[in-house]
């Protein structure tokens, strides 16, 4: 009976025969409304970015599998999800060639170098985005306004930049609610944020659709619901306390909750099954750390948004979290640590 891989996790150990591709397919269904809304609000520029990142991820996965003489793993959908998620975190007017580079990096550096699916320390899509943020800081913070007229007939002037060349500056740019708050102290109303009537990364604008996707996944038990709940609760409580202390300097908690990439990050990125802890308590600690870092970076950091770094940092310590709170083995004494 031991000819299959052992599943290392806390109890219960007997689970339904739910394969990787089942889960991954459902994540795609959950992401689809978000992606469709992104294309609807930002036009074909956003579609180009999504196609580029997804294609880059799938192609890289396929090529690297062949290179290391393994069976191609693109049919398990995980590379496509990484690509889709990466695309959803990029600005809609992001040059296609940069998006493609990001996809290649996400799979090669974020996933394959650690040994492929199931071994990645960090969420691959965020690794790709972090490298893009460090490499092209101007392009990744140039935002394109939503609901432009003619967004379905023409792409933004920077979308089809010649590879390795600087994108031309768009005539029309917008500011995200977070940068508007950070640099001009303007607070966008929470209703606009929830409905996605704002500027931002392709997939982060409509908080309600993201939540719907999350609820679907949680209901089908394909996602650990404790993670997003812990993150969102931490952010809400912490920013609420700060807002009570000084209503002028600190934004209201609902603004913090619905702006930027927090929803997308909490629901689809932080819940990466491989890079998050496995124990129920560990997951809550993990969520708390992400929420704390998000608030700290957004309010006191030099950057307007910090969800990406918060999740990557928490990914890095998630194995340690599991170690700290190792459940006591039944029957051993309370003081002696089971090792």
């Amino acid at each position: 009976m031991l000819n299959r891989t052992l599943n290392i996790s806390t109890s219960p150990h007997i689970v339904k025969g739910l394969g990787t591709d089942d889960i991954m397919q459902n994540v795609v269904w959950a992401l689809l409304p978000v992606a469709i809304f992104a294309v609807y609000s930002f036009g074909i520029s956003a579609l180009m970015v999504l196609v580029a990142t997804t294609a880059a991820c799938v192609l890289t996965e396929h090529f690297l599998c062949r290179f290391s003489k393994k069976e191609s793993t693109i049919s398990d959908w995980s590379a496509a999800i990484t690509g889709l998620l990466l695309g959803l975190t990029l600005p809609p007017n992001f040059p296609v060639w940069m998006a493609f580079v990001g996809g290649v990096i996400a799979i090669a550096l974020g996933k394959f170098i650690f040994g492929g699916l199931g071994y990645n320390v960090f969420n691959p899509a965020l690794v790709g985005r972090a490298v893009l943020q460090a490499a092209f800081p101007v392009a990744i913070t140039t935002w394109y306004p939503a609901f432009l007229e003619g967004r379905f007939s023409a792409v933004s002037s920077s979308t089809f930049t010649v590879p390795f060349m600087e994108p031309t500056v768009d005539a029309i740019t917008g500011a995200t609610p977070l940068s508007a708050f950070k640099f001009d102290q303007v607070i966008t109303p929470a209703s606009d944020l929830a409905l996605g009537l704002i500027t931002g990364s392709t997939g982060e604008t409509c908080a309600l659709l993201i939540l719907l996707g999350g609820i679907y996944l949680a209901a089908r038990k394909m996602m650990n619901w404790r993670i997003p709940v812990a993150i969102l609760a931490t952010v809400y409580v912490l920013s609420g306390i700060l807002h009570l202390i000084d209503t002028q300097a600190y934004p209201p908690p609902l603004f913090m909750l619905f702006s930027g990439g927090l929803m997308l990050g909490a629901v689809f990125m932080a819940t990466d099954m491989v890079a998050s802890p496995i124990t129920p308590l560990g997951v809550v600690i993990y969520g708390f750390i992400i929420g704390l870092l998000v608030v700290v970076i957004r309010i006191w950091g030099g950057l307007p948004e910090g969800v990406m770094y918060a999740i990557l940092l928490a990914n890095a310590i998630s194995p340690h979290i599991d170690n700290w709170i190792q459940p006591r083995v039944y029957g051993t004494s309370k003081t002696a640590k089971a090792s």
């Binding site: 940069m98 460090a134 490499a135 092209f136 392009a139 390795f164 060349m165 600087e166 994108p167």
Partner: peptide, 10 residues
């Protein structure tokens, strides 16, 4: 490279 080369600041 040509003038408008995009530098990889990282």
């Amino acid at each position: 490279f040509p003038d408008n080369f995009q530098e990889w600041i990282v």
